[in-house]
Design a protein around this nucleic acid. Structure first.
Lengths: 203, 203, 203, 203
DNA sequence: CGGTAATCGAGACGGTACGTCGCGTCTTCGA
DNA sequence: TCGAAGACGCGACGTACCGTCTCGATTACCG
């Protein structure tokens, strides 16, 4: 399909090992900035300083390009398992918050929006979009096993609450209040988790 | 600045009264589909069947174009005041859900995303983005006056929970499950509001 | 076909008598400046200050417009008949020179060039183009009757010599030498006619 | 400035060597047909099948474009020096006639007319316009050296007569008589030169 | 140690989308 | 009914960008 095939031909000039890095950085930045329609080979070449031929030799479409960049750059969702539902959710919220305010802040939202419009993007984005779902599901399952919540608890709704609230909070905060938002983030996330937990916990 | 000035010059051929409608429809569709960067005069002309000259005669930028279209097409947020916090929130959630799944489904998310990237869009979108905030604030204030919640309740967090959860729910539902999502919407919104309320209410 | 019909309707507002003049002036200037392709109703309306509808009501095409303007503005070729071939030719040469350097200087050349490219212009221009031919023919005929030249003399060639030489002289004189050209015109035309006459006269 | 620089950058894809030819053909045809105002990059691209980007990469204005095309396509005026004034003029007349009836027939007249209106064109056309003047001047000078004509003879006037007459003859011949004009050209040019010579020669 | 082969950057090429401008047609008001 | 103003759809133009292509230069291996 695309690249990173281990069995590269042994003859000829070897591939530049540093090239991929520059390309991936450019892909992430361009996609985060301009979305799917801005992710052109031309722009990636311009931004990364890599010739267009080199790009086309290794990747053959926007999909493969973004797919490879995501695989290399997207922060792996570390497993959350602290032993209590409260701290699990708190950590999940923090993870979402960091993701939405970090270096690739807009990526998640771009992927959500673009995936709704461009079907060809869906197969690239879905694994990353589902990560959080799986994470949340595992958290709930363990909490249910510990008897903290009924096993019937809708884990989708819980994820919508935590993820959606954090997302909405970050997105609706105007630029000039970002600094303050960062400062108040701990207490905001604390309260958020507290409310959600109080809402779903068994009485 | 733009158009819709009531005192049009009495000389010359009068402006086509049906033109605005076609243009606004095109603007809304194009923006919802492709976002800010796709909202070109060329595309609007092509989609609406209106000559580019006529567009430039009436509107002088993407901003004025989108602003006028939003003003004409965006569903006015009706005031919510049912007398109880629970039904107020339920209605708010329903309103958000309808907005995110209705005819101009992607508009809200587009506005959120694009506003973060294009400052010139902010002044167009902010009034519409803040509508919900104001609505939520009024709901909380009345509920506090009725003693249902402490007046110190963070209305922003509450809005993040309700709006964010609905938004996340709609966005993360894959296309093939949309039908089912619509069917289950009432119970989903019921439970969502119930959880949020239980989370914030005084004990 | 077009306009200037004497039997204008007696009802309604009478036609502005000054309008035609302004239009013709504009037509002549525009055509002289930019040629056939620049002679648009839009340009004429802009230049003359007359509304486009008024133009279209009276004239229905570039042809009729130019035709009417030419008929009204083109200097009538006055009959030349001084009694001797020499002074007849001298006067003809002067007439051509005045035409090529006067107010509608470029008209003749424009008509010649454009007529070769746009057949629809031919029927407008040909009468004016042939005026000189007829004039020259009459001059030769009278000279032949007086025995000054053989009746077999090719009047076309003679016209080509006189008209062509004057035309070429004016056209190839660079702008900064126009003043001097005007000053030297009498002697130039004198010598021109002298040479041509000496060339064609019977020995 | 323009193109045809020999020291092309050795990097990147080399320029298509056949491209210039197609472009020059298109430029000559378009200019001859429609004149200066019709010579747009758009039209040249359409006619030559060359992308507009390629045109703008090599030439930066109508001037440079026409200049390059003229330099490549305009028939070089071969030196005329037969040893006698009569045959020199005869050949000059023939050259003018061929030029005015050949493949780029209208070019000369277009250049004359347009140069009077568009100053920026003058620097392109003047070298070609002056070729004939220089040619005529050399012819006269040699004839004067041989004693055939007085050295005081106005070479400008002679050129006006020969060139102007041929030009006028060709231009005023209606299309349906072009065939016949071609047939009668030798005798016409013979007589033309004969008359001019008889007019200017020493008695 | 020289040939071979693949990679890389540079840039030329045709095509297309966009904003601007000008045109001919039309539709009104006031005289 | 005429004259002026101006709105309308259409198309041409110059600019910028995109994907494809073709080169020279580089850099390993393998005979």
């Amino acid at each position: 399909m695309s690249s990173t095939s281990k069995d590269r031909p042994l003859r000829g000039r070897p591939r530049d090992p540093e090239l991929e890095g520059r390309v991936f950085d450019a892909v992430m930045q361009i996609y985060a900035h301009g979305g799917w329609s801005a992710l052109t080979f031309e722009a990636v070449a311009r931004e990364s300083g890599v010739g267009k031929s080199s790009l086309y030799r290794r990747w053959d479409s926007q999909q493969t390009l973004l797919h490879a960049a995501m695989k290399a750059r997207w922060l792996p969702v570390h497993n959350i398992d602290t032993g209590s539902l409260h701290s699990d959710l708190r950590e999940l919220a923090q993870m979402i918050f960091d993701n939405r305010t970090g270096h690739y802040a807009n990526m998640s939202n771009r992927l959500l929006i673009d995936a709704a419009r461009f079907p060809e993007l869906r197969e690239v984005s879905s694994p990353y979009m589902e990560e959080t779902v799986l994470q949340a599901r595992a958290i709930i399952r363990r909490a249910a096993a510990r008897g903290e919540v009924p096993s019937s608890l809708n884990h989708g709704l819980l994820m919508d609450l935590v993820v959606g609230a954090v997302n909405n909070h970050v997105l609706t905060t105007p630029p000039k209040l970002r600094k303050e938002m960062q400062r108040k983030a701990p207490s905001f996330l604390d309260e958020l988790v507290k409310i959600v937990l109080r809402g779903v916990e068994v009485r």
